[in-house]
């Protein structure tokens, strides 16, 4: 089998699901450069084992899992994610487009400042809609740890505009 043929399915998969995976990577990092690093690393691992992964029939799940694993490796190495700015904007308000864009940027920046584990919990709980139990099992930690990470993350994110997080974080963390 030629190299071209070997990766044909991989190319097709990336072209069809690349944007969805990019969204996941961005939420897991809160930073465009880090998201690219994270996703490319996961895709490289996926490409290396593509024949087996293709045979299993769940390549997207494999890439998402690889990203979570990589995030954990970064966290284990205490690797800092470089941010375009270390400052956190003050509370913002107002419904216009400029405000909205600024708020999104502020949320992304705050997200990037969270420890990777907290970002992983937010992603699994609020984007993948996993339960606390399933999140804990995917991250190999206790439900209590998931609660704590969700709680800690939401407390830090409360520095965002009030309308984004208008209820007490602990009420969400107790879900």
């Amino acid at each position: 089998m030629s190299g071209q043929d070997q990766y044909a399915g991989f190319r097709e998969f990336v072209l069809s699901r690349g944007q969805a995976l990019s969204r996941a990577a961005y939420l897991l990092t809160g930073d465009h450069q880090a998201a690219e690093d994270l996703l490319q690393e996961a895709l490289a691992r996926t490409a290396r084992h593509w024949r087996r992964i293709e045979r299993d029939g769940r390549p997207e799940a494999y890439v998402r899992t690889a990203m979570l694993n990589q995030l954990r490796s970064w966290y284990r190495r205490r690797r800092p994610i470089e941010l375009p700015s270390a400052s956190v904007p003050d509370r913002l308000g107002g419904p216009d487009v400029a405000d909205h864009v600024t708020q999104q940027a502020a949320l992304a920046r705050l997200l990037a400042l969270l420890p990777p584990r907290q970002r992983a919990v937010l992603y699994l709980r609020y984007y993948e809609d996993l339960s606390e139990v399933d999140t804990a099992r995917l991250l190999r930690c206790s439900v209590g740890t998931v609660k704590r990470h969700a709680h800690d993350a939401l407390v830090r994110l409360r520095k965002q505009p009030a309308h984004l997080l208008d209820s007490h974080p602990s009420s969400e963390a107790r879900r």
Binding site: V14, G18, Q19, L21, S22, R23, A24, A25, Y26, L27, H32, A35, E36, L39, Q40, L43, Q104, L107, A108, L111, Y127
Partner: peptide, 9 residues
């Protein structure tokens, strides 16, 4: 916020 993601793949 996810919609702000670029195309990294």
């Amino acid at each position: 916020l996810a919609e702000e993601a670029g195309s990294y793949a």
